[in-house]
Nucleic acid binder design. Sequence first.
DNA 1: GAGCCTCGAGTTCC
DNA 2: CTCGAGGCTC
Length: 702
Amino acid sequence: MPENKSVSELTKQEAAQELERLAALLKTANTAYHQDDAPEISDAEYDRQKRRNLEIETLFPALKRKDSPTDQVGAPLGETFSKIRHSVRMLSLGNAFDDQDVVDFDTSIRKFLGLEGDAPLAYTAEPKIDGLSLALRFENGRLVHAVTRGDGQVGENVTKNAMTIPDIPHTISGAPSVLEVRGEVYMATEDFTKLNAQQTASGSKVFANPRNAAAGSLRQLDASVTASRPLRFFAYAWGEISEPISDTQTGVLEKFKEFGFSVNSRTNTCQNVDQILAHYRAISDDRSELGYDIDGVVYKVDRLDYQEKLGFRSTTPRWAIAHKFPAEKAWTRLEAIDIQVGRTGALSPVARLAPITVGGVVVSNATLHNEDYIAGRDSKGNLIRDGRDIRVGDWVEIYRAGDVIPKISDVDVSKREDGAQPFKFPSRCPVCNSIALREDGDSVARCTGGFVCDAQAVERLKHFVGRSAFDIDGLGDKQIEQFFERGWIKKPGDIFRFAAQHAQDLSKLDGYGDKSIDNLFTGIEERRTIPLNRFLFGLGIRHLGETSSALLARFFSSWDRIKEVLGAAQDENSAEYAELLSIDGVGEVMARALIDTFNDSQQRAVIDDLADQLTIEDIAQVDHGDSDVAGKIVVFTGTLEQMTRAEAKAGAEARGAKVSGSVSKKTDYVIAGPGAGSKAKKAEELGVTIVSEAEWLDLIGR
DNA sequence: GAGCCTCGAGTTCC
DNA sequence: CTCGAGGCTC
């Protein structure tokens, strides 16, 4: 019975059965919960089954059902918001930082569309509100759910909260049967000031800026709290839409107004780059009087048929760009430069700063990247900061890159104290004193200490217990540091001897009662059985990330097989070495890293010591005998609208098809989306079958 | 060999 | 989030 099997043991067919069973089970449970108020299964069981469903979907993305419980609204609200998958991904925008970037943007669009330099090409230009994006889905004119952006693919269901925002209509008339309106939730500066005054008076938390206040207010579990907060909403974009409502961006915004949404009044339709830039300057001049925070101006190609032709890059549309205002900057003193040692031994310098507020947040650290960066050069040897180096004691200018990561943009040499010396980058690891080496072409120096370096050992252990690796409950960064220092956990294998060897020690530690000890040991035991991909990733081998670990696990299926292959692959003329390199996504560098690690006696001992204590679950090899496309060679070209490239590839491969990048006469199908060019043409010439994305999905039974 | 895309590594703050 | 590197395509 597949329901008794662990996820990693499922064959593809069983996985499909399980997804079907879980969809039905969770649907019944949902109905029972909402309509009868009498749950058939406990919340915990519900969560468990839902998680199982998600795990199977993660491992077999191609099998995900249209009625997947993962996407369903109205799941029982636990302690957090339920997750909803966006039917059309919410992307971010590319950035322009100066006028030239905007000119380049226009030029590249004209080139893509095949327009002459003087052909008419209109854009919309509107302020970029500094709030948080929200997607509002209307079905038959009724608001059915409101979802935050999340990671772009999956966001949080904040429908109840969104419905308390006055700018958001609950019903609209004259709209298509499905319409997803997207826009920005924000808080006006005046309202923000008032709210903070209230918060201060009542002794509650004061918000750092309007954006944080808006985010905090929208993500309240109690919607009545959200209702008491002065949130507003501007509509500016859309996701899924059942039929077109206009043929221009400007026209759609007009429709939004008719439906009852607020649309930003400083939205202009511009006929050329000069008009765009003039509008940018006008908005920039009025920035402080707008009444809300903005961080730039967004430009979009006005004609929707052009937008469609232009399509998308991996994470951004080609037809839009955000022209950012210069980042807020502030000067402060550099008090020290510390060197941190990472898991791979990389020595990274960190600037310790006199605390300073930049963009509403207090900053006290900033990255300095590497030796060259401090000296005033980038990785290619070009000068940065006009070649000025950074010294301890200097006054430095801080900004937050992408409004998050603090960085140093400039240094004031005139304020430098006499006798300040250039920073001398250490030639030895500050933790273990081993030689630090910078390999040819590498921008970072690495500690060569390997196993003798405690810093590397700790970082490797942190990686090992991390979320994408072993994910051990109760064992986080803090605990690892503490247990390492006490000598209780020095290498991964020690974790699984911990309960047997250090239960007594632990009970003497502050903050560890019977309950927490029990929780920790349970957390460890739960991971004694581990899927192969997580095991591989946990080893922390350089160049082997989460994705590649899953790839290898899928390809080789078992731990025994991997050991066998990596052992034999030492010989570069072996069939095993060739097999390794034949994997799509594995190149020489990764192969070398794997082989070297596995054949180093010291590292191998640590790995074997760990593996001996674990049950490493095989990953079921893909069985796709019954698919119509098994063994076929397919090529994707143009823009895919219903799935990402990666999903398309995974979906095809899961059904036994081989995905190739170029069309030849051996190609069986070319799946062509909008914007398909040379490849579709070549397919035509060679007489290769061309299908649309929809036809392809039909073909593979989705 | 250039250019695009994705992945990996390292980083900060709430 | 950003940078750099690896891998792949043209």
